[in-house]
Design a binder for these strands. Structure first.
Lengths: 117, 117
DNA sequence: CGGCATCCCTGTGGATACTG
DNA sequence: CAGTATCCACAGGGATGCCG
């Protein structure tokens, strides 16, 4: 009997270059939208859920945690009676805005020429 | 007996906003790397495989097809004896470079501060 | 309100082999 | 050389439910 160990996953992660690493920050599902929503100021958890229509709480939570760990946003617990939490971009996070802007800029052109949507 | 149709997938795609749409262009695995590799000129299929270390032929092929359909790169078959194919960025594709640049720029800062890698 | 835990399904990508 | 075909593993997300 052959053991036939199928080792599909590459042992080493796919070449952790800077581009790939940083892309991972903004390419989790909805991550760009979260950043985008925060561009104009702090937002609360449920505000974000409404801003970004069909995002599930789980994923929003995951992204917020992740982005927080990456130093892109900060979590701010407000001492109100129904406890509320604010998120906002850090200085570092704000630097992502131009990047997203550039992407959206290209997005317009892609749309114009009918390549997307 | 309940049929219990588990309809996990959202009927409508996740809010096709421009940002999301355009992100999808560059967020397939390796897509940014492909674009990055092409930034300094046309490359051949196998050159790209070497440039982008552990990319599988399948995925490279998939990304190239996809990017071609999206109008970001063009395919160029050269009439050499061992047939070779060149890929290069379109004008539109070149506009993605600044976006990636911006991302890499932030990447450096993230790295500096130890948030990634 | 904010946000885990669970459960399950799909898409995406890797390995390998094969074709023109 | 430049791919395509098949097969499969797995991470990432959606739904739902529960908790402080």
């Amino acid at each position: 009997m052959s053991l036939k160990v199928r080792l599909n996953k590459s042992p080493k992660p796919p070449q952790t270059c800077l581009l790939t690493e940083c892309m991972s920050v903004i390419s989790g599902a909805w991550a760009p939208n979260v950043i985008w929503s925060l561009r104009s100021g702090p937002r609360r958890f449920n505000e974000l859920r409404i801003d970004i229509p069909p995002i599930s709480a789980k994923v929003l939570s995951a992204r917020l945690t992740e982005l927080t760990e990456r130093g892109v946003i900060v979590r701010n617990v407000l001492p109100t009676s129904p406890p509320s939490v604010e998120y906002q971009l850090t200085e570092l996070g704000q630097e992502l805005i131009p990047a997203l802007d550039a992407i959206v800029h290209v997005g317009y052109k892609l749309k114009d020429k009918g390549y997307i949507e």
